[in-house]
Amino acid sequence: MSFLDRIAEGWRKNRKPGYYENFDYHWTMTIDLDQCSGCGACVTACQAENNLPIVGEKAFAKGREVKWLRMEHYWEGEYPDVKLNIIPMLCQHCDNAPCETVCPVSATYHNQDGLNTQIYNRCIGTRSCAVYCPYEVRYFNYNDHTWDSPLDQQLNPDVSVREKGVMEKCTFCIQRVRQAKDTAKDDGRRRVRDGEVQPACVQTCPSQAMAFGDRNDPESNVSQTLAGPRAYRVLDELNTKSSVVYLKKVETEA
């Protein structure tokens, strides 16, 4: 194959939405809203695992908070007849990700595991991806952040500390995915077992509302859950084909 043919081939392949015909794995998270109590342990876990900065009061007031996983609150009705609906919102790792198509430097792209990547050292901070993301889960570092001692001692060495001018978002705890693959290779296995990868939020959830696994494997925990009647995707009408699937809350009339 000549050089030009190779480029053309690569172009054709990579322009296809969801451009790997078959993902090696298709990592998927399920969040059962019926089990979710809204405690926010996952938010804290994500913060600790992924070196998320505490931006401070001023930046917070400007809406520059960084929270890869946040709890969204929706109030219903008038006081005293109110109801609170909560939904944990994180990057949905869309297969048709709007954010990927706009990145001028391919700092965000789809990898062979069906994950929406974010490469910090490649990112030039145009922030277009944050504009295109319908879930508003991309966060920009407007400042360099510091960790006062002894907090700097708890930074995760497997995750880069992002600097000013870089976009970031939930990675499905890629460091843990890589670690599980590494362990699998050590054991001479080709594939990661179901339940071997546990992102920080999933691991922490006290009511076990979250689950993580490979959707390509029909036997896996998440595949079974997906087949259930309560499964739905947020903003499905936008055809983002997201990889985070929520399970509807069961309403009981009191």
């Binding site: 090696d24 792209y109 990898n111 062979q112 595991d113 994950l115 990547t117 490469i119 910090y120 050292n121 490649r122 497997d158 995750v159 880069s160 990675t171 890629i174 460091q175 890589r178 693959k181």
Partner: peptide, 12 residues
Amino acid sequence: FDNGLDCWTCHK
């Protein structure tokens, strides 16, 4: 390498 050319192999 299988899996070795993904940016996330080293940058994460």
